[in-house]
Design a binder for these strands. Structure first.
Length: 457
RNA sequence: GUCCCCAUCGUCUAGCCCGGUUAGGACACCACCCUUUCACGGUGAGAACCGGGGUUCGAAUCCCCGUGGGGACGCCA
């Protein structure tokens, strides 16, 4: 194991969103690539807004995406506890060091960090108040993605609230020191905070970690970065919708990073092998759900039969699709496998396969009108029923031969029998390949559906 | 308003560091092919270097200025 230590430090103040997942992913990938340690630390210092529910969402989402942490809640480690709400004694110690060094002072009941430099009063018309400005030397940040960035930190800032709770900037830095974090990989929205953090590291006499500020994910429509309220922003939503987690990981890895060539669909082991901070872009990326959906489809298509069936069944169970009674296991499996090459995602399955499991399937009126308006579909259906009564149902090919033989005898084509029979047995004009559908449904079900359709037509 | 970051097809991006390409790929869109519906797949088309200066024989690539986009400016994280 290398000495590289990275951390993902979410605060459980809302559902886990895609931007956080991407930040976690880049940290995780970097740790795995370098053989380093991936630490999970929970930043729950804002007692007002934290909740256990959100905390569990974070754990679930990380696990679902396959991002296992080496140190953190539930795992332990040499630098715990890993929830900031349990680290108060550590913070007190560090705060005292700052006070003793003359780098912190009390004002209005809060503790402030003291910058070094000459002071003067100035009116800030953005905040509409007079503030004390400090003529401080610029803080230099050497960012692994952005290069050298200079920013002047020119106002003392609160590090412990008047209610006694330390603020983010302080605990974030203390924990990074205490947990020996070597690389801070986080969103670019923190770049402006980094000068505060660097000053704190220096005040503590601690080595400044390497920073890597990754580009933000912008919302798909409209201005600004993606926020929790945006459509498609929540990881749990993809989990609920039966997305393949590996597809989401693959998609996310490509938002702001690329392997340096044209490859896009890659197993995670390959992404780990190729990932490096030097390959991370500097510009923000707009979220594109169509591309994600496409990636997901590619993964669905590539799933091995047993794996696909297991995932599909889990989805059906979770969404209580068979509330009226579970179908035969073997039949369900056949239906699922028949549908796999045709769907874009697991979530399409219930609607796509519904008619396989009920005799009360609706006949699409539009499709019926269209199909029944040309040629002599009723006669075709009667002819087909006649043939199907004795046809060999043991394989798709056998059924296909039977239908083709019939068509040839009547001087017609396969297509003349397809539309109407598909309509009769499924009520629609889309679905898996016809002969496979017949085979899976079985002779009796097909025949009775055709008869019922004929009687109603 | 102040400070910081960024800028190649509609979108994600390669190329930029180290100047010379018909500026490549993917998603989306369109057409055609495959075909037993719908998909998948295949082929093809359209589609970009933000603007202006400079340096240079030559600039997407280096520099400057605009403009545009994003972020930060909390006793939130």
């Amino acid at each position: 194991m290398s000495s590289i230590r990275v951390r993902f430090a979410p605060s459980p103040t809302g559902f886990f969103h895609i931007g956080s997942a991407r930040t976690a992913l880049f940290n995780w990938l970097y740790a795995r690539h370098t053989g380093g340690t991936f630490v999970l630390r929970i930043e729950d210092t804002d007692k007002e807004r934290n909740s256990e529910e959100f905390l569990n969402v974070i754990y679930d989402s990380l696990k679902w995406l396959g991002m296992n942490w080496d140190e953190g809640p539930g795992i332990g480690g040499d630098y715990g506890p890993y929830r900031q709400s349990e680290r108060d004694p550590i913070y007190r110690e560090y705060i005292q060091k700052l006070i003793d060094a003359g780098r912190a002072y009390e004002k209005d009941g809060a503790i402030w960090f003291k910058l070094i430099g000459e002071r003067h009063e100035a009116y800030d018309d953005h905040r509409k108040k007079t503030v004390t400005k400090v003529k401080a030397a610029p803080t230099e940040i050497n960012d692994l993605i952005r290069g050298r960035v200079e920013r002047v930190e020119d106002e003392d800032f609160v590090i412990v609230r008047s209610d006694g709770n330390p603020v983010f900037h302080l605990v974030n830095v203390i924990d990074d020191i205490a947990m020996k974090i070597t690389h801070v990989i986080r969103g670019e929205d923190h770049l402006s905070n980094t000068s505060k953090h660097v000053e704190l590291f220096k005040a503590f006499g601690a080595p400044v970690p390497h920073f890597a500020h990754i580009p933000l994910i912008l919302k798909q429509n409209g201005p600004g970065k993606m926020s929790k309220r945006d459509q498609g922003a929540l990881v749990e939503e993809y989990q609920r919708r039966g997305y393949i987690p590996e597809a989401l990981v693959n998609f996310l890895s490509l938002l702001g990073w690329n392997p340096g060539d044209d490859r896009e669909k890659m197993p995670v082991e390959e992404i780990i092998r190729l990932f490096d901070l030097s390959g991370v872009n500097q510009s923000n990326a707009r979220f594109d759900d169509k591309k994600l959906a496409h990636m997901n489809m590619a993964y669905v298509l590539a799933l091995l039969a047993d794996d696909f069936v297991a995932r599909a069944k889990a989805y059906f169970t979770k969404h209580n699709v068979f509330a009226a009674g579970a179908p035969d296991e073997a039949y369900l499996r056949e239906v699922l496998l028949l549908s796999q090459p045709k769907i874009k995602g697991i979530e399409d399955l219930p609607a796509y396969t519904a008619y396989f499991f009920t005799e009360n399937y609706a006949i699409d009126a539009k499709v019926r009108d269209k199909v029944m308006s040309k040629g002599d579909p009723k006669t075709r259906l009667q002819e087909l029923a006649g043939v199907l009564k004795t046809a060999d149902f043991s394989s798709d090919l056998a059924i296909e031969e039977a239908i083709k033989t019939l068509a040839a005898a009547k001087g017609l084509g396969f297509g003349d029998y397809q539309a109407v029979s598909r309509l009769a047995v499924s009520g629609t004009n889309v679905g898996p390949n016809l002969t496979g559908m017949f085979r899976v449904m079985g002779r009796e079900r097909v025949l009775s559906r055709i008869e019922r359709f004929l009687a109603a037509a």
